[in-house]
Design a protein around this nucleic acid. Sequence first.
DNA 1: TTGAAAATACCAAGAATAGGGTATTTTTAT
DNA 2: ATAAAAATACCCTATTCTTGGTATTTTCAA
Lengths: 218, 218
Amino acid sequence: MTTLWIIEDNISFSHMIRTALNQSDWCKCEHEFTNVADALKLLSMGKSPDVILTDINLPGMNGIDGIKAIKSIVKEIEIIVLTVFDDNEKLFDAICNGANGYLLKNSSPDEILDAIKIVVDGGSSINAGLARKVFNIFSAMKQTENTYGLTKRETEILNYLVDGKTVNEIAKITFTSPQTVQTHIKNIYHKVHVNSRGGLVSKALKEGLVPKGVFTKN
Amino acid sequence: MTTLWIIEDNISFSHMIRTALNQSDWCKCEHEFTNVADALKLLSMGKSPDVILTDINLPGMNGIDGIKAIKSIVKEIEIIVLTVFDDNEKLFDAICNGANGYLLKNSSPDEILDAIKIVVDGGSSINAGLARKVFNIFSAMKQTENTYGLTKRETEILNYLVDGKTVNEIAKITFTSPQTVQTHIKNIYHKVHVNSRGGLVSKALKEGLVPKGVFTKN
DNA sequence: TTGAAAATACCAAGAATAGGGTATTTTTAT
DNA sequence: ATAAAAATACCCTATTCTTGGTATTTTCAA
């Protein structure tokens, strides 16, 4: 039996969902809350469900911050966002904060039940349309491929600069003279069109001239 | 009628898929290729399908680079990756390069047909397990929330530093003296534990002390 | 209203950087 | 084999940065 809590300030909508979900023989909605704080209170008293279905637009703490707050108390809870918002920012923030599913409010009870099953089975639930948005967010943050024609050595030195290393430190690392490093940096500045260390590091990171180390394996 | 190309070096597997998909009354596989180059050749001759199903591990150009190459010729083609790899890096790279679907090779013909239908309908196709991985990649790149106790003014100045501005420029912008700015920077250095401009900018961007402007609305 | 925190401002000196040169040696690709 | 590109190295100077101080005024929360 999968236990469920709902956080939703529209009580009639909440009741409707609860009634529909409780029709199933494997999912039981134990509590309904109209705000995050009440749910947190019960969580910190040691109670917790398998899954929480939460709205985003809520009185007091919003649902996005709610995800974070909930997870900080019980990390294992699967959280599914149920909202009318389908903009990139909400979607992005919800997922970043640890949501495991994202449903729109026009979803049918069956779709909601499917989503609950998916997250308890270790998957994440998102429909094809929203998945496209997620995919687009990813490809939008793709590195710009812009190398400004930096050579191998220049790229290597750029990496050290981004690490905050000084000219002398880099000279020691590369077994060259500080003057050589200085010359390389000078050439990098010209190629990248910057005139300060901070500007270079910033551009290098923002435009993906150096690896950012985004994720972990598997 | 949805037209399809397959890029897959395992010819018997490719044939099998083609035969299965052609059973449907709405999807027709027009061509099979064993490498990306052959597909690109036909694309540059003006031919193009609605959807391309591609492997990743291919002789010559790999499927990930293939996506980029294909999209650079015909941007509108929907590309679905069909591979045995389920690691984060391949998944991430494929999506970043513009894949609109990601299927594992153990998918059934029906699942592949579903995926094709989804992408031509403007969605993206990914199963719940892989979706969880995508979600996790997102949450892994979440900002660290670490502000190092920077004050409002310090954060403001940090933003200017990340923009590559000098002390004097910042002083003019903030209508304060260069000495004041210098003092703020000194304090920032102590709080953030760095001792160079490059190191500060790097840490600020990598740890999300300043906004990175990741995505676009909707 | 009354401390504490934040923001302001200045001094000074050694270190490092930015930007302008020039020039030789190595690599690399044709 | 040879020309072009890359890497190496040095000089010089004005500017900027880093880091240690001290000290006054504002702001803000208890």
